[in-house]
Design a protein around this nucleic acid. Sequence first.
DNA 1: CGCAACTCTCAGGTTTCTCTCAGAAACGCC
DNA 2: GGCGTTTCTGAGAGAAACCTGAGAGTTGCG
Lengths: 232, 232
Amino acid sequence: MHESEGTRILVVDDEPNIADLVATALRYEGFDVQTKATGRTAVDAVREWSPQLVVLDVMLPDVDGFAVQERLRRDGRRVPVLFLTARDTVEDRVRGLTLGGDDYLTKPFSIDELVARVRAVLRRTQPEDASRERISYFDLEIDEGTRDVRRAGRRIDLSPTEYVLLRYLLVNARRVMSKAQILDHVWQYDFGGDGRIVETYISYLRKKVDADAVPLIQTVRGVGYVLRHPED
Amino acid sequence: MHESEGTRILVVDDEPNIADLVATALRYEGFDVQTKATGRTAVDAVREWSPQLVVLDVMLPDVDGFAVQERLRRDGRRVPVLFLTARDTVEDRVRGLTLGGDDYLTKPFSIDELVARVRAVLRRTQPEDASRERISYFDLEIDEGTRDVRRAGRRIDLSPTEYVLLRYLLVNARRVMSKAQILDHVWQYDFGGDGRIVETYISYLRKKVDADAVPLIQTVRGVGYVLRHPED
DNA sequence: CGCAACTCTCAGGTTTCTCTCAGAAACGCC
DNA sequence: GGCGTTTCTGAGAGAAACCTGAGAGTTGCG
């Protein structure tokens, strides 16, 4: 029983592929999802459906994302928004959003990053769900809030990609994940290369995480990778 | 009383041999199966018959597999798909599949692998079927989710082929399986060698599974092999 | 601008897996 | 016990999967 059950999320994007991708991923996480393609219909949907969160593309054919937010605010609805923006879009207006409980994500993003942000925003605005901050397995732990990674208490510095990959393995500890699954969840949705990059990043992680301790990152030949203690 | 009873699966492949093979195997597992040879008829069949899963060849004479999925999605049908793809077709367009609960399998595959994937996809999309994750006999157990194999609690590392073979014996525990049956289920359907390879792999398994414990893998001379406790 | 950090590709080296084969061992039958 | 048949298992070739260092291209930042 997901704690996300019953949480309504409205996804607004005019590219059907993106809207679908996001909706599918969030539905799989147990959220109730609706999609809209325009600012106008989005505003209507918020009024009628009262979602707890809106995932909102900044660039829309009619009214732009900020205007949508503005309109909702004037409505008196204080629904938090996770903005999606293209990389080269002005980020000035987007910066500073994190103060109001909102957040943003630049396209292209990875599914896991999106889900993590969604949860983070919900956590901030619906404090009942106070858990899920720390994930740990054996002597390895991650703090979702601060992005702190520790092995046996010692802090480890990870690059963004390394962090998302390790978190994915940690969330699925003891479960073998195929390279295809890892690619789908960790890499940006438009990544075009093949699965060999996963090998490279596993190698990076091993050097940082498994350097002088029991190796937790295991290769399962012909299948994928697992995070698992050797005697577990 | 298979729990798979009443579960409808549509198999779509233009090679009659493959479609037949798959359909027969799934019927034997207790599923309701229909087969179609083209994308067009497949879409119609989904509309009329509403299967819980579609096994779909990517390469079809008329509309290709991805287009079929696209069409179903636009229909608003959220039926999960297990794609079949040729070995050298993989990786390009298959990205993103594991997000929506879909999956893929490269030809040639083994029957047991196919059945395992079908069950995995159904498990993800129809969570009522929460059991069947673990299969066990005596002190030997397999966890399908984590791919864990244990004998008397101790973990055992198996290669992919060893794993599929052991799982086959375990699922059919106490039933003698002929070398021909084992070949048909465990090895890829186009395997050309003879049955002596089964002997080799049984030997590998014995070394790993029956090493220092009551031997569970029994030879039935002139017939085949069984997984069975000596006093059972 | 220049530097540092990061991402991704590639290729050579290494490990592991699959499958074949052949001699040894075990078995069933007479 | 002797004999033909079946099974067992070690050795090894070839293929596949994986690891990792080097380096090119980007991005971000001072």
